[in-house]
Design a protein around this nucleic acid. Sequence first.
DNA 1: CTATGTGTTGAT
DNA 2: TCAACACATAGG
Length: 323
Amino acid sequence: MEGGCVEEASSDWVKRLHVSKVPQHIGSGVSVVLDPSAEGGGIEAESRKLSSSWYKGVVPQPNGRYGSQIYERHQRVWLGNFGDEAEAARAYDVAAQRFRGCDAATNFKPLTESNDEEAAELSFLVAHSEAEIVDMLRKHTYHDEFHQSKQTLRSAREILFDKVVTPSDVGKLNRLVIPKQHAEKHFQLKSGSSVARNGVLLNFEDAAGKMWRFRYSYWNSSRSYVVTKGWSRFVKEKSLKAGDLVSFWRSTGSEKQLCIDWKTSPVACNRAVPPAIRPLPVVKLFGVDISGVPARGDDGKRGREMELFPPPQFFKKQFVEAL
DNA sequence: CTATGTGTTGAT
DNA sequence: TCAACACATAGG
């Protein structure tokens, strides 16, 4: 439900910026005269009246600071005061995107799901009430809370199930079979519905915080539940090999975010892959179908490979035996 | 006392 | 909806 806004969104914020007001001094060279009486005197202007030309939702305060506000249902919602207008503008943007969704006009580039960090923020936004977000903005604690939530999310999670991937799961079939037992328990699809036929897109966050978006559906032909679109990319990024373990989790926090982790099979590790490109305990990559995107778009910054995520109950009997 | 946020109005 | 601006009042 939270995945309301999707891809391509980054293209029109620029338009909005120009449509809405930006600064007074725009490229056209036309200087906006707000106070006719002051214009003649030149610089005098700003000293008397509060000049404006602010960002959307930002209102200058007598003390030189900047208030932020948004209107909702015929009423003003105060978002707090800030030291500089850009900060106030960012507060407005946050509120706008929470109140009005991804299509809301914003001062800066709106959040999109095509970016890890932004997608995480988007779900954070949706996971909190409007009142909570407003409260955070007014107290200037929004950023802290957001980053904090990412920590919590990553640490507090419960295992749903795991699976030792088969050769076909990592082969050319580009799909992962979800054992029926687990599929029906954790990833239910309304049978008969269009959702069941077309499948549904599910977001999974890995231990590093990267998001993966997979298409999950039911194949009548084989009467099995499968993860298709997006899976091959995961296999590739993680260099998954048959015998490796993939585990599915769900955060226990309010966001109930689905998570995915993987663990290389000791055997598989020995017999194949060159250590050089092997590791990456966890790869992040945010959802959205990056499969069709030019290689340059998604990676670029493979950045942080981090320390191994505290291994769950990996390599338990089941796993070892399976080898 | 000052900073903050509300009342209120006129304009999109 | 939105921001300009007056001003009550929360807060130190």
